[in-house]
Amino acid sequence: MTMESPHASALHLKHAGLERRILEEMKRPLPDLGVIQQLKRQKLRLKEELTRS
């Protein structure tokens, strides 16, 4: 088992935070789809960066 780099750990934390924010926004009575799209794009960029590192 390899140790995760501090950078990768930070990316995982940011990814989890974005996921939480997306879920919170979707639970609202009138979710802002623009905000959800923006958060999903950020989450995808983090995921792509994680696969490269």
Rank of each mutant, 00 (worst) to 15 (best):
M1G: 07
M1Q: 11
M1A: 11
M1W: 09
M1E: 10
T2M: 03
T2F: 04
E4Y: 04
S5L: 15
S5I: 13
S5H: 13
S5N: 02
S5R: 10
P6C: 04
H7D: 04
H7C: 06
S9H: 12
S9Q: 15
S9D: 08
S9E: 08
S9L: 13
S9R: 15
S9K: 15
S9C: 10
A10N: 14
A10C: 06
L11I: 00
H12L: 04
L13C: 00
K14C: 09
K14Q: 15
K14Y: 07
H15M: 07
A16F: 14
A16Y: 14
G17D: 13
G17W: 08
L18N: 08
L18A: 05
L18D: 00
E19I: 00
E19L: 05
E19T: 12
R20M: 12
R20Q: 15
R20Y: 14
R20A: 15
R21A: 15
R21K: 15
L23R: 15
E24L: 14
E24N: 13
E25R: 08
E25V: 11
M26P: 04
M26H: 12
K27H: 13
K27Q: 14
K27F: 08
K27G: 00
R28N: 11
R28A: 14
P29M: 11
P29T: 10
P29L: 09
L30N: 11
L30M: 09
L30G: 07
L30F: 10
L30P: 01
L30E: 13
P31C: 01
P31R: 06
D32F: 08
L33P: 02
L33V: 09
L33Q: 13
G34Q: 13
G34K: 14
G34Y: 09
V35P: 01
V35D: 09
V35F: 05
V35Q: 12
V35H: 09
I36N: 05
I36H: 07
I36P: 03
Q37C: 12
Q37Y: 12
Q37N: 14
Q38R: 15
Q38D: 13
Q38H: 10
L39C: 00
L39F: 12
L39M: 07
K40P: 01
K40E: 07
K40Q: 08
K40V: 01
R41F: 02
R41C: 00
R41M: 05
R41A: 06
K43N: 08
K43H: 10
K43F: 04
K43P: 03
L44V: 04
L44A: 09
R45P: 01
R45G: 01
R45A: 03
R45I: 04
R45V: 03
L46F: 08
L46Y: 07
L46I: 15
K47N: 00
K47V: 02
K47R: 11
K47H: 05
K47Q: 06
K47L: 02
E48G: 05
E48R: 09
E48I: 05
E48F: 04
E48M: 09
E48N: 11
E49F: 02
E49N: 00
E49H: 09
E49L: 01
E49G: 03
L50V: 06
L50G: 00
L50M: 13
L50K: 06
L50T: 04
R52I: 01
R52F: 00
R52C: 03
S53F: 03
S53L: 14
S53W: 06
